[in-house]
Design a protein around this nucleic acid. Sequence first.
DNA 1: GCTTGCCAGACTTTCGAATGCAGGTGGTTT
DNA 2: AAACCACCTGCATTCGAAAGTCTGGCAAGC
Lengths: 235, 235
Amino acid sequence: MAKKSTTLEALLSSPENELGQTVSDAVFRQMREDIILGILPPGSKIKLEQARQRYSVSVSSLREILYRLTAENLVIAEGQRGFEVSPVSRQELMELADLRILLECHAIELSFAAGDLEWEGHIVAAHHRLAAVERRLLSGDFSRTIDWVRYDWEFHQAIVAACNSAALMQNLSSVFDRFLRYHMLAESFRGQPVVDDHRMLFEIALKKDVAAAKDILRRHIRSGVEHILQSKTFL
Amino acid sequence: MAKKSTTLEALLSSPENELGQTVSDAVFRQMREDIILGILPPGSKIKLEQARQRYSVSVSSLREILYRLTAENLVIAEGQRGFEVSPVSRQELMELADLRILLECHAIELSFAAGDLEWEGHIVAAHHRLAAVERRLLSGDFSRTIDWVRYDWEFHQAIVAACNSAALMQNLSSVFDRFLRYHMLAESFRGQPVVDDHRMLFEIALKKDVAAAKDILRRHIRSGVEHILQSKTFL
DNA sequence: GCTTGCCAGACTTTCGAATGCAGGTGGTTT
DNA sequence: AAACCACCTGCATTCGAAAGTCTGGCAAGC
């Protein structure tokens, strides 16, 4: 156990290595990522014994974790009949897009109103990192798509970071992740338009032009939905 | 165990007695209610052994439940140092109010656009029930404040029910409940103004006047915040 | 031949005990 | 007397086994 613990901690010694890292926490993040990245396919049943071995934890801990994911709508629990990865649907995709637009536009408004110089600095940094990864993607190197996911979120997060509402950020973050799952299922990068959107959003954020930023964001998200719907045929 | 199970099921044989009622589920709801109603005071530590006895479940199940509540922000888990009921703060109250306004206004817009005759029927019914409870409250009978909580939510829910977005409803519901906890902490009914607000909202919903409904809702929520801040002195 | 009831196997749910942290206490050293 | 270290206690965490529940197949009856 002590051994496992250290192994996992080493595995997760990412930039932010929080203290009080508990085993459940580690596996929780792992499973969460596996679902969002589509490694655990939507709608698939999660058999406890099987998953127990895969993630090397006990059944009880696993159940803790699965219930946590349930609350985020990434897993559904049917009483007495176990767990399964949340299915995907065209309807849900549209709902999530709509919700993301609502939350993120509102956050932009608050954030632009309160953003200071430090905030701008973080945006510059985040966009720089994102743009670098996107250049690699455009040149055909898909090996680090997972990095793109992270930097994309960090960029969007940086823009709304000054909104000064933890509750809003949490909600947005949760919706964003669920939305992201659909992106990962589409399995293809949308290309130049995404890069352009991000560049525009970046420049407009520094100008603090609320209306323009909202417009771009809306278009950005809706184009994403279009792209996903074309890549993948849903019911 | 079988005995406990039946006892709890009997206890919870509310209108909607779902099948596959699992022990965890029952206790989960119970604890959730206890937190929202302020029976478990904000910021208090939850000792596992103590809670285990109080709710008659095992530690493992309890942990499952607490993690579920964590995901809803009703409980916070500090790795290796156990759980505690989420503290309250003026800041969070304002954030929740802001978020509720954002989500519920958006839901109103969607719902009014799509609402049909059946939808109207449900609103009439929900308002009827709510008004009855409010009359009792106004006449000084506070024995059933818990009913008011339920009917208030059912009324607001009925109004936005036609929004046709499960994701939006879930989010709104979660924010609503967290907001409600503050209401319960204030420990006093706001009185006639609330009743008037509900009546106006009711009439305007049937007219499907989006702008007016949003105005009333905004005022309704902001007045609620005022009232809470006056009743209780927060930092 | 079709339905119905029963049995076996697989899986989920729940438990209580073993393990391992964290923070406090008391003793020792400078 | 103050500061530091090592033990110790009280919980949190994790586990695997026991108990309960569902599912699908087989046999008996209509």
